[in-house]
Amino acid sequence: MKSVVPQKNVSMRDVFGDTLLKFSLESSRVYAIDGDLANSTKLDTVANGNPKKFLQMGIAEQNMMSVAAGLATTGLQPWACTFAAFLSKRAIDQIQVQIAQPKLDVKMIGAYSGLLTGVTGKTHQALEDIAIFRSLANMVVLAPADAIEMKQMMEFAHKYEGPVYMRIARDPYPVIVDGKYQFEFGKATTLKDGKDITIISTGTQTSRSLAAAEQLEAEGISVAVVHMPTIKPLDTDAIINAAKSTGVIVTAEEHSIYGGLGSAVAEVLVEECPAPMLRVGVKDVNAESAKNDDLLEKYGLSEGHIVKTVKEALKKKRN
């Protein structure tokens, strides 16, 4: 895919609810599992549209995930959804022992992932979920850039038999993939070509990376943007190719700089194709409750930060 101009904003959580309702109507195996957040996560679309396929587990995430595991052993496909902060930390032992280790067919949807969680602050922000889920054997980790890609990922996850974690965003994001796009499991996609440097981004940081790349282009810097929708298993070839073709890399993610996409890319580069790189992410601090733009600015995730980081990275580029 070539350069794509961001289009209208679409809410991931709305499309998530609609898509899961469709699955629940089409497949007898699909159940929605809620931790009392359905009207936030939009799991209520299933509760309203197909109430028999909606199971309320209350405010008890550990039990919720173990129940999902039990349901999966009976042949059902539970889609458990709660805030990514709780899924990734509160119930992680249950997920590891009863879902990941036995490779059960449970889909885990981390809603309100990242920094922008609707003015709820550091208790509800999920900046470690990629690191945590990526470290579990048998786990698939997905981070869609927009609602269209998320829907395609859900279709993949529905067909795939095994544990899948998908982190999605609360707020509407611009649609950046075009009508011809098809999510491919385990494959990166080049959203913009460029020859000076590559930004490898995931999830919601991809639209900001594209905007930053356009801005840099106007300043005469040619920036490639490679979107990494599957964080595990990682498309190592795409990373090696980016290092070979542009010689320097910046990663961008709405996540801590520790353990997430930046770490994953660094691991590949160091082992396979050493190249200078810098990471855009939250730098070992706890954030706070504030408006989205203020958070992005203060915690280093805005377009402006990506632009600045690209310029710093270029100084490290070997000639």
Binding site: G70, L71, L76, Q101
Partner: peptide
């Protein structure tokens, strides 16, 4: 073996899921 266990407190929840699965599927 009908469920993996070892980390305490989890098996009873999984059993709830298995029993619920039976009810939902008329087993």
């Amino acid at each position: 073996l009908d469920m993996s266990t070892g980390s305490l407190g989890q098996g009873i929840s999984a059993a709830v899921g298995i029993a619920l699965g039976a009810k939902l599927q008329g087993k």
